[in-house]
């Protein structure tokens, strides 16, 4: 890791220090994860200390449709949330940078509200909002002259409501990350592209997006992570068919967090790590092919 640093020459000591600090921090990040993986093989229901090796929890996991469904729901919700958040956050940051909107300060403050507000307040207020909208709908549905499609309209807690809630607290993270990247960005970049005949859309897509990309990636990673791990807001807004993994895990605390929960985390982490390595490998081999 240290060797690949592109730091100025004559700074070997600093490089070494930086590299080893990074190593220490990564160890800090991964020690609990390693432990979690090891304990997924623990022969103990309560899973507090090591009692012996077993694969039973992986067998139990294979039969545990509730957990598997919950993981599926979590991934669907996190993926859609990330996609919407990236679009809203990136476009929002770019527009706020490019144009001077009236009440810009107000908009900037509003963006931070979902971050600043405690999750429980946001959860309950969104649930109240959804149920108020529903009762409003229902009261008008009593009117007979309303069209058929309107009569059938209904708001139920489910994927849509969770995703709405998740996007609301995730997109500000993307926006702030992209905004930080745009500070001091060369304004002439985009204009130069347009002077050369690019349409505004093309200028945005081929000039601005690549420039913002590192921030977009980190924003997307943050949004995905936040959505994957959210409990309180999900508890209020999720319906019976959209229960997420954190909700199901939380529901099992009382029973004791048995190792099958470690097992599902392990399977997921290893699968992700595998995918990352695979995509790197594909990228690298395609690069080598193109070099030839």
């Amino acid at each position: 890791m240290t060797r690949s640093l592109r730091l100025p020459s004559g700074l070997k000591l600093m490089n070494l220090l930086l590299g080893s600090w990074t190593g220490v921090v990564f160890a800090f990040l991964y020690i609990p994860i390693l432990l979690l993986i090891v304990f997924s093989f623990n022969d103990s229901q309560l899973n507090l200390r090591w009692e012996g090796f077993t694969l039973d929890w992986y067998r139990a996991l294979a039969e545990d449709t509730v957990l598997i469904d919950a993981l599926k729901n979590t991934l669907i919700i996190a993926a859609i949330t990330t996609a919407i958040s990236v679009v809203i956050g990136t476009v929002g940051a770019w527009l706020l940078y490019r144009y001077t909107y009236p009440w810009r300060k107000l908009v900037n403050t509003l963006i931070f509200i979902p971050m600043a507000i405690p999750e429980i307040i946001m959860g309950i207020s969104l649930l109240i909002l959804f149920s108020m909208t529903m009762s409003l709908l229902e009261s008008w549905q009593a009117l007979e002259w309303m069209p058929q499609w309107y009569q059938e309209l209904t708001i139920q807690r489910g994927f849509t409501t969770v995703i709405i809630a998740h996007v609301t607290f995730c997109f500000p993270f993307v926006l702030v990350a992209v905004q930080a990247r745009l500070v001091g960005a060369d304004a002439s970049l985009e204009e130069a592209a347009m002077d050369l005949g690019a349409t505004p859309l093309k200028a945005f897509w081929f000039v601005m997006v690549p420039y913002m990309l590192p921030a977009i990636i980190s924003g997307a990673l943050m949004a995905f992570t936040l959505s994957m791990d959210e409990i309180i807001i999900s508890w209020f807004t999720a319906g019976p068919d959209s229960q997420t993994l954190p909700l199901k895990i939380f529901a099992r605390v009382k029973k004791g967090l048995d190792p099958s929960l470690n097992a599902i985390s392990t399977v997921f982490i290893l699968a992700t790590a595998g995918l990352v390595v695979l995509s790197e490998w594909i990228k690298r081999s395609s690069r080598e092919v193109s070099k030839r």
Partner: peptide, 11 residues
Amino acid sequence: MIPFWTSFLIR
């Protein structure tokens, strides 16, 4: 980021 894709409670 990957460590944070496990549940907060399990971590």
